[in-house]
Simulated assay, not measured.
Amino acid sequence: MADLSQAEHQIHYVTNFQDLISTPFRGVINAICWTRELIGDFSEIVKKVELNGNMAVIEQEELCELQLSEQGQLARKILLNDMRALKAHGASPILNVINRYDQDDTYPFFPTDVYSFHVDRSPIPTDTFLCTYYGEPSEILPNSQGKKKVLIPEIRDQLKKLYHGTEDGFESFLSEHFFDLHYQAEPAARLISLGLGHLWRLAVDHPESQVPPCLHRAPKERSGQKRLLLIC
């Protein structure tokens, strides 16, 4: 069975925002978590936001205009503080209410949506920040317990059947269609929940990265329960 304690060695825990943004990734550490116990009623904010589709973006102005109870106002203050801190750091936070994400069924044997364990990639140095305030939290797959799907022989064979170019161009084909970003969990993998209220910084695959990118995915939403997620 996979060792959870070994898996958690890739996570470093901090107690404030400054340490979250300034602590370097190093060695196997590719996830940093600001652990928090938040106050306020985030569900009230979720209920106040109207969804015309599967997901809605809450702009800061809209958030400020919501008529909320005292507990809802406490939750809103936390959201606004998080967004302002991330913007001051140079990030572009997006606050979403999510019913569900669109699922990719283009290739049934290889979905490339956010429900699949994947890494984020960028041409420039950056990090992924996220926090689930309400609903099912995101999950991390320890790097030691996941395998890149394009290296699994039976999956690779199926991908080659989709590809009609020269052998030299196959790896570029995998990258262009984002197949190389996705991972499969080992049968005994011990997944790590990101929990509620904690603000996470995850390593991204970029040219200057000194650590492996963090494998993560969106959770399957609980029936009838929306999520409140900040991500950038």
Rank of each mutant, 00 (worst) to 15 (best):
I29Q: 05
I39L: 14
G165Y: 02
S5A: 07
K148S: 00
E61R: 00
T23V: 14
P153Q: 00
L194C: 15
S69G: 15
D82K: 07
G195H: 03
I155Y: 09
I192R: 03
G40S: 14
P187V: 02
L86M: 11
C33Y: 05
A91G: 06
A189G: 05
S122F: 08
R76D: 07
C33L: 04
E139I: 05
H89M: 15
L162Y: 07
F179Q: 04
V97S: 03
F170Q: 08
R156C: 10
D127Q: 06
S175F: 06
T15M: 04
L174I: 02
E65I: 05
L38V: 15
T166M: 13
L229T: 08
G224C: 11
L196M: 11
F110Y: 12
E37H: 13
Q184V: 10
Q184W: 08
A188R: 02
L174Q: 00
K77Q: 15
K48F: 01
F129K: 05
A88G: 14
P111I: 12
N99T: 03
S116Q: 10
D127A: 12
E62Q: 07
C232N: 15
C232M: 12
D102Y: 13
P93V: 03
L174P: 00
I231S: 14
K220Q: 09
N52S: 03
N30M: 04
Y107G: 07
R217E: 09
L20I: 12
V204P: 01
Q158T: 00
L74T: 08
A7I: 04
A189E: 00
P24K: 09
G197R: 09
A31W: 14
W34N: 06
G165M: 05
T112W: 05
C214D: 07
R84N: 15
T112D: 12
D180Q: 05
E70L: 14
R76L: 03
Y115T: 12
S175K: 09
L20Q: 08
H12P: 13
M55A: 09
F117W: 11
Q184E: 14
E154H: 08
A218R: 10
Q225E: 15
D3L: 03
E61L: 08
L51P: 01
V46G: 04
K47N: 10
F110N: 02
V97T: 06
H198V: 01
Y183P: 09
R100Y: 01
G90F: 07
L51W: 02
A7G: 12
L229P: 11
R84Q: 15
L80G: 06
T106W: 00
K87H: 13
P108R: 11
C33N: 10
W200K: 07
S22L: 14
L68P: 02
C232T: 15
E186Q: 00
I29L: 02
P125W: 05
W34P: 06
Q103H: 02
P125I: 00
V46I: 02
V14I: 11
K160V: 01
R36Y: 08
F17Y: 15
E70V: 14
L95M: 14
I11W: 13
F178P: 02
H9D: 03
N99G: 01
D104F: 01
D3R: 05
Q10K: 00
I155S: 07
E50R: 02
D180T: 02
R222H: 08
T106S: 00
R190L: 08
A88W: 09
